[in-house]
Amino acid sequence: MDLLAQILVNGTLQGGLYAVMALGLALVWGVLNIVNLAHGAFIMLGGYASWYLYTYAHIDPFLGLPLTAAVMFGLGYGLQRGLLNLVIRAPMFNTLLITFGLEVVLTYLAQLVFSADFRTINPPYAGNSLAWGPVVLPLARLAAFGVAIVLTVGMWLFLLHTRLGRAIRATAQNLVAARLYGVEPRHLYAMTFGLGIALAGAAGTLYGTVSQINPYIGASLTAKSFAISIIGGLENPLGVIVGGLFLGIVESLTTLYIGQTFADVASFGILVLVLIVRPSGLLGKTT
């Protein structure tokens, strides 16, 4: 019983991180209709940025997170303005190809620049943990979970209640009307992609504090983010939280009762099931 409780807690903590990983992908997908296959590579870059900040400038990863996110935002804005806006009207296949190309380039650039060594952001409190009855709460994971939830809920409130957030939702729903009411799509798309990449950078920072980063983590993180976006639905950042927690818990349970190697089978099996049964996501409307 204690073991089950511990597994559920582990899954929940992991799920929060999954949510913030998928959030940027879902945002970009929902608004720009680009499935960004390089999303995981941007998570990887965010992880390295925070690793360098911590290792050479001794900036705590949680304090350095806004800086990493800001730099990644600039990178995302520039990429959308200079590259992706050129193909935004093209069929989805073209944007898939371009973002796949980006993923390959970023991965091999990372291998050249950062080497293939595994890195972990290891602040002094990394080994500490809290005890909650019989359940152990590793401090770094708990903090990463907290930040992930704050970011996701913050994103939700931003989309609901700010002028830019409203314009992002409006553009996703009706581009023609948004343009008629003064939205300049090139700028708005770049802001949205920038936000998506900033979230990826933040996710990378959190990932680096609880797990190991290397240049090749991108592809599998993209796949996982994709699955969570589908499971949660693209409409609503809270759906991404649900999708992330669900996947985290399912993976932990699968690891405990069936075996580590089956964790991915379970998560992508669920993806297929969701696509068949509830294609608009767990929280999506079934119309």
Binding site: A167, Q173, N174, Y181, V183
Partner: peptide
């Protein structure tokens, strides 16, 4: 120069208030 387009072209999945606020976006 503001248009009320044919077929309304509202932001269907946004509230009435949000639609009005999109009118004043600029």
């Amino acid at each position: 120069l503001v248009q009320v387009p044919e077929g309304r072209q509202l932001f269907d999945r946004m509230t009435v208030q949000d639609n009005l606020l999109m009118g004043s976006y600029r």
